[in-house]
Amino acid sequence: MEQNKYLEDISEIKNMMSRSSRFISLSGISGILAGIYALIGAYLAHSILVKNPLYMFSSKTDVTRYSMLNLNNLYFIAIGVIIAAAITGVLLTLKKSRESGEKMWDVTSKRLVFNFLIPLFTGGLFCLSLIQNEIYGLVAPATLLFYGLACVNASKYTLRDVRYLGFANIIIGLIATQFIGYGLYFWALGFGVFHILYGSIMYFKYDKKN
């Protein structure tokens, strides 16, 4: 019947509009796993810090008094968490995009990655300069703030839900500026708990339906 054809036309229009402007194959599970990695990382970092009360995120700390080994361990944990989260994210997104027939590396995903990386890269460099100037207390709030901004910026090119993850991280990033020395807890909340929450919401909203 004619009516069916019109219905098909409309759904084709909607499908093309969303697929050409947004990358929608982000995996919810990868968000949950990224959050779990972050919590494990935070736990490991915490146990190092408790053993050697470094309080590296306190502006009053004289980092030079502490052994470089511990500082290096913290960097290793941070880098390990990032790499694990990135690999998991890419693999699960690849799987999901294959299932939905969407190309993983197309115009929309390139645009998404590019726009996500602008604030993130800026933030990374800014944090390096904070470390360089020994303003350690603001590193944790700054990472949360820039990560939040990156999410808000990227949300224009993917599922809108990423926007709320961004807002949440911006808010606790700002709050964290008032609690210098507790950076690790804010990290665990922002990168850990919020990711798990966001990933679960995405999973139940988009992945489970299909």
């Binding site: 084709e12 093309m16 509009m17 050409s20 197309d106």
Partner: peptide, 26 residues
């Protein structure tokens, strides 16, 4: 036609699209 519908849909939500993007999408 499905292809024309697709071309217009893509161009409605994007400032522009090049030939390859349209080809890939459609």
């Amino acid at each position: 036609h499905r292809i024309r519908l697709g071309i217009m849909s893509i161009l409605m939500v994007n400032d522009y699209a090049d030939f390859n993007m349209l080809k890939e999408m459609l």
